[in-house]
Amino acid sequence: MYLSGGTCVTLIMIGGGTMKIFFQIICGSTCNVNPLTTMEWYVVFTCCAAVLAQLPNLNSIAGVSLIGAVTAISYCSLIWVISLSKTRPMGVSYDPVHANSDGEKLISILNALGIIAFAFRGHNLVLEIQGTMPCSGKSPSRVPMWKGVKFAYVIIAMCLFPIAIGGYWAYGNMIPSGGMLNALYKYHGHDISKLLLGLASLLVVLNSLSSFQIYAMPVFDNLELRYTSKKNKPCPWWLRSGSRAAFGCLAFFIAVALPFLPSLAGLIGGIALPITLAYPCFMWLVIKKPRRYSGNWYLNWALGVLGMILSILVVTGAIWDIATMGLEIHFFKPQ
């Protein structure tokens, strides 16, 4: 619930902000239409997401998931190919950022690990997706799920490694806070056709809309499970639609109220880190019940404890980084 809700808030910020950029690219400087504010674009994105959110379950959004995957691969490839094909900006530097002390350097590394963990936030959906698969003693669902996870992360690596390596080569330390898409607008907006810039923005918007449904589905399932468990009957369509629209409104409110939330990516990723590095080990111990003090018992306890320690260190690093570097806080003022 925590990861899904936080991700949906971030997607509203990304999708709504990119909608604004897409309109500016298509409309151009000669357009006489009064542009919408950032908050109004958030409303447009949330309304579109709320309509798509009426699909009942994860199985029904397989097509939406496919669109999300195709658009992600497309815009990642488009961005790094364009960045590599254009001339690098003047003054690009690859010198490492110098820390004032070894402690500050360690804190920065831990905060970066939290941001990386937040980037791979899809891990909280693995068990949700596996739960939709047919399972029997002869054909356990973990077999196709493991194949799917391996294939999915190969695709993710094919998207993220080229854009990270190519982006660093193209922009070095000059990458703006908004990431590679903002770097594309900032440094190559004058020498790239509107068609390519608009296409990149449109792909990001479509990916954000598709991702919203996927990440929000565990929240929807949890809310409906509470109703069916308490009432012992299926959730009516009007309640399901209303609860999903209400969740969209809540995510929109948080996105508007806390526009500085992306600056807390390291902290959010650190808090979520045990879902990947610790909880599975403890779950395996509870479910499989290996012989006490056996090799597997020691291994899973060691990995689980190590995952919790790493999570605490990453959270500490993120908090320390915020305390030392500062955080620009502006409530209800999305940029």
Rank of each mutant, 00 (worst) to 15 (best):
I116Q: 06
L127F: 07
A119C: 10
H123M: 12
H123T: 09
Y153S: 09
K147I: 06
K150M: 14
V126P: 04
G122Y: 15
V97E: 07
G122N: 15
I115C: 02
A117F: 13
P140Y: 07
M145N: 11
V126T: 15
G131T: 02
K138T: 09
G114Y: 13
H98T: 15
A119E: 04
G114P: 01
I109E: 04
A112V: 02
H123E: 08
N100L: 01
V154A: 12
Q130E: 08
I129D: 00
G103M: 03
S136P: 02
V154R: 00
A152M: 10
Y153C: 08
G122I: 05
V149M: 09
S141E: 14
F118E: 00
N111F: 07
L125H: 00
L106I: 11
A99V: 02
N124T: 14
G122P: 10
P134T: 14
S108F: 01
A112I: 04
A152L: 10
V154H: 04
P134H: 11
T132I: 07
G148K: 03
C135P: 12
C135N: 15
S108T: 03
G114W: 13
V97P: 00
F120V: 05
N100D: 05
P144Y: 05
I129T: 08
F151R: 06
K147T: 07
I129F: 10
L113I: 02
Q130F: 11
V126C: 08
M133A: 09
V143E: 15
L110Y: 00
R121C: 13
I155M: 10
Y153A: 13
G131R: 06
N124R: 12
K147V: 09
G114H: 14
S141F: 06
K138H: 04
G114V: 01
V97W: 04
H123D: 07
E104T: 06
D102S: 08
G103R: 04
E104L: 14
G103W: 06
S136L: 08
P144T: 08
A152H: 03
S141K: 08
S139K: 15
V154P: 00
V149E: 05
L106M: 08
A119L: 05
V143P: 03
I129L: 04
I129N: 00
I107P: 01
V126N: 03
G131K: 03
P134A: 14
L110K: 00
L110R: 00
E104R: 01
V154G: 07
T132G: 12
A117E: 13
